[in-house]
Design a protein around this nucleic acid. Structure first.
Lengths: 132, 132
DNA sequence: AGAATAGTTGAGCAATTGTTCAATTATGAT
DNA sequence: ATCATAATTGAACAATTGCTCAACTATTCT
């Protein structure tokens, strides 16, 4: 049978390609181990929450600054070069996560760091980045 | 001169309140020190970039999984329970930041971790979170 | 050659985020 | 009492992000 002139139906006639992988391609034992020992969902969420706090220039600088000593919101805003409002909003997040503590003196609020692990992690990262 | 009857103009006539703090409220020396020794902008950006990568459940799990050994994209997607596409997109980010390396074998790509600092940071954080 | 598979990529979308603006509370000063 | 100041908060807006979908490349198999 001679080939008709229309044989080639255009490759775009291909059906939608699966975008999931239904079989283990290669390292079945490692895949099994990982499925068993993968981080629990709530562990992952907690880790993400921790790193999220640090993944913002303002919060990072707040934590770094408070690492040097207690500061009132106004002084902190001054150091950051940001508005009182923006500073206060970020402090609230840090407060909610119990990374900072505060005390009032009249109408002034003094904030300080309240999480040794976070402090150390930032210091380590700073050292690593600054060591060229 | 007698006071006019119009003195009280309504409190809501207050003009827009400054949202910046133009003076140092309290600890001038510390503020001066911090202004001098605050993290440089590019240091902050690098730090943020580092923490941003880890502030996502998928990337975190990828890094954790690759910490156990080299994996092809398909196996990795399988372990994560995600689509090939989503997995590949995230791997591209990790590749761009040189956190993972890869090698090809035929049409399969094998990825592995390529940043000891990141690996250690995740391991430390996991340990801290899991230690109740 | 043609079909199937492993992986990559760009566009588009829904969800989230950080800031500003304006209003508000509470304390201190006149 | 009234005003100014320190700080907090909610709404709104712009920018960013992570996924899906579809199209595409490249390699392997028949």
């Amino acid at each position: 049978m001679p080939k008709a002139t229309v044989t080639k139906k255009r490759t775009s006639a291909r059906l939608p390609v699966r975008d999931t992988c239904e079989q283990v391609c290669y390292d079945a034992p490692l895949v099994r181990t990982l499925k068993r020992e993968m981080l629990a969902d709530d562990t992952v969420m907690e880790l993400v929450a921790t790193f999220e706090v640090l993944a913002d220039p303002t919060r990072l600088r707040i934590i770094y600054a408070l690492g040097r000593g207690e500061l009132c919101v106004c002084d902190l805003a001054h150091v950051l070069g940001m508005s009182l409002s923006a500073t206060s909003h970020q402090l609230r997040r840090l407060r909610d996560l119990r990374l900072v503590k505060y005390r009032y003196e009249g109408r002034m609020a003094f904030y300080s760091l309240d999480d040794e692990f976070i402090k150390k992690m930032v210091e380590d990262a700073v050292q690593h980045v600054e060591s060229d």
